[in-house]
Amino acid sequence: MTVLKNVSFDLMRGDYLCVVGENGAGKSTLIKCLAGLKKPAEGSIERSREISRRDVGYLPQQTAIQRDFPASVREVVISGCLNNDRLLPFYNKSDRMRADKYMGELGITHLAGRSYRELSGGQQQRVLLARALCASGKLLILDEPVTGLDPIVTGEIYSIIKEINRKHHTTVIMVSHDVNTAVKSANKILQVKNTVQFCGSTEDYLKSAVGKAFIGG
């Protein structure tokens, strides 16, 4: 079954794209295609030569497995480095420095030795963000990063993502059902419902009929 048809959009380096839409509109399918987890039924996703598969940092929705998985924060974060080219399959010094750097940036250095499963939801998302950054600082694909978090923590996570986008010129593609907050940080909006309903800059979206209806409703 095709959930989403005729989607096409361009992104430039440093863009922050938010994909919005109702439940079942095809947001997750789109993001999975972009992350390379699913193949589109027709058409293709082309990446510029600057962005290879190894330049993708991904923040998936949490799985049941992770809830009782014994792993320290450091182990989780550094596992993001594995996609870099290496001679030996083990971690090297630059991997460890990379992990330390991003743990510091996300304010989780003091949690490094703690067990991932014992952290709060917001702390867990920070850990997964640090891991995504270890994988790549070029493109971040975020699948509903604030699901199940309280409003305060949600705000914190959004501002962290915005900060990463600004500081490192990281391209961000985020799926969210929380439009109101999303439009505040994204510079581009893609609204889908089985097909593209809106694609363009955030200012245009706020003026458009589709945007007004979705935000107001």
Partner: peptide, 22 residues
Amino acid sequence: IVFYNQIFAVTFDEPFAKATGI
């Protein structure tokens, strides 16, 4: 032992590992 780190990554989070090119 050789693939310990990769085995960890695949066990902990398969979608992430796949998306990042492992």
